[in-house]
C-alpha cells in the first residue's frame, strides 16, 4: 500500500525525481494562478461587481480579517504568505473529492516544506518588523533562562506543523482506501466527507498557527497570547 504520493515516481535522474506530489502541486498551482488571473484580469471598482469577483473579494477579506484578528496590524504585508498557505492547503485538501486524486499535503515532504517555509518566514518577518535585535530579544522573553526552551519550541512547533497536517490528510486518504477495500459502498463516502471537513480545518489551523508565530515574532502585544494558543494545540 502506497502511503505517500512521493512514492509514485514518473521520472528520475539521480537526486532529481519527478513524483506525483510535485506534479499534483504544479497542477494545483496552475489551477490557482489561472483561476485568480481569469477572475482578476477585469476587476471593477464599481459598486456592482461580478459574482466571481464577489467570491474572491469575500475570500481575501476574510483572510485579511483573520490575520488582523490574530494581532497583525498590517495584514496586507502578510496576506501573500499566510493567504497562500491557507489557499494551497485548502484547495489541495478539497480536491480529494476528485477520483484518483492524491493530495500533495498527504506527503510529509510537502508538509515539511510548508513547515520549513513557516520556520524561515517567522524570523524573516520578525527581523523585517523589529530589526535583528528586536527579534533575537524575543527569545529571551520573559527572561534568559527561557532561551533554550524558546529555541526548542521553535523547532518542535515546526515539526508539529508538518506532522499534524501530513498525519491528518494522509490518514484521511488511508482510511478511505482501507474502507473501500472492506466496505466498498456508502462508508467511504462518509469518510470522504469527513476528510473534506478535516482538510478545511487543517488548512485553517496551519494558516492561523503560522499567523500566530509571525505575530509573536513581530513582538505584537497580541502575539504573546498567540503562544498560549500554540500551547493548547
Amino acid at each position: 500500500m502506497r502511503i505517500s504520493p512521493d512514492q509514485m515516481v514518473f521520472w528520475e535522474y539521480g537526486f532529481i525525481s519527478l513524483n506525483l506530489t510535485i506534479v499534483t502541486t504544479w497542477v494545483l498551482m496552475l489551477l490557482l494562478a489561472l483561476g485568480a488571473w481569469l477572475i482578476t484580469r477585469n476587476l471593477k471598482s464599481e459598486i456592482k461587481t461580478s459574482r466571481w469577483q464577489n467570491v474572491l473579494e469575500m475570500l481575501v477579506i476574510m483572510i485579511r480579517d483573520q490575520i488582523k484578528e490574530v494581532g497583525l496590524k498590517k495584514p496586507e504585508k502578510y496576506i501573500g504568505f499566510i493567504g497562500t498557505l491557507f489557499l494551497f492547503i485548502a484547495v489541495s485538501n478539497l480536491l480529494t473529492i476528485v477520483p484518483w486524486y492524491e493530495a500533495p499535503t498527504g506527503s510529509l515532504s510537502t508538509t515539511a516544506a510548508l513547515a520549513i517555509s513557516v520556520f524561515i518566514a517567522v524570523p524573516v518577518f520578525g527581523i523585517a518588523d523589529g530589526g535583528l535585535k528586536g527579534y533575537l530579544r524575543s527569545y529571551l522573553q520573559p527572561n534568559f533562562i527561557m532561551l533554550p526552551f524558546n529555541i526548542i519550541s521553535e523547532i518542535s512547533r515546526t515539526l508539529a506543523l508538518a506532522v499534524r497536517l501530513f498525519g491528518n490528510i494522509m490518514s484521511g486518504g488511508l482510511i478511505a482506501t482501507v474502507l473501500i477495500s472492506i466496505v466498498p459502498f456508502f462508508f467511504p463516502m462518509i469518510m470522504s466527507a469527513l476528510g473534506l471537513l478535516t482538510g478545511m480545518i487543517q488548512a485553517y489551523i496551519f494558516a492561523i498557527l503560522a499567523t500566530v508565530y509571525i505575530a509573536a515574532a513581530t513582538q505584537d502585544e497580541k502575539g504573546i497570547e498567540g503562544r498560549e494558543v500554540e500551547g493548547s494545540e
Binding site: 512521493d6 537526486f15 532529481i16 525525481s17 513524483n19 506530489t21 510535485i22 502541486t25 504544479w26 498551482m29 490557482l32 494562478a33 485568480a36 488571473w37 482578476t40 474572491l56 481575501v60 501573500g80 504568505f81 493567504g83 497562500t84 489557499l87 494551497f88 500533495p104 506527503s107 515532504s109 510537502t110 515539511a112 516544506a113 510548508l114 520549513i116 517555509s117
Partner: peptide
C-alpha cells in the same frame, strides 16, 4: 524525500508570488 521538500518549497514560493501578483 528531500528533493521533493526543496521542490515544494520552491513551488510554494512561486505560488506565493503568483497569487500575490494575480489575486
Amino acid at each position: 524525500n528531500w528533493f521533493t521538500v526543496i521542490a515544494q518549497i520552491v513551488n510554494f514560493l512561486i505560488l506565493v508570488w503568483l497569487l500575490k501578483r494575480f489575486l
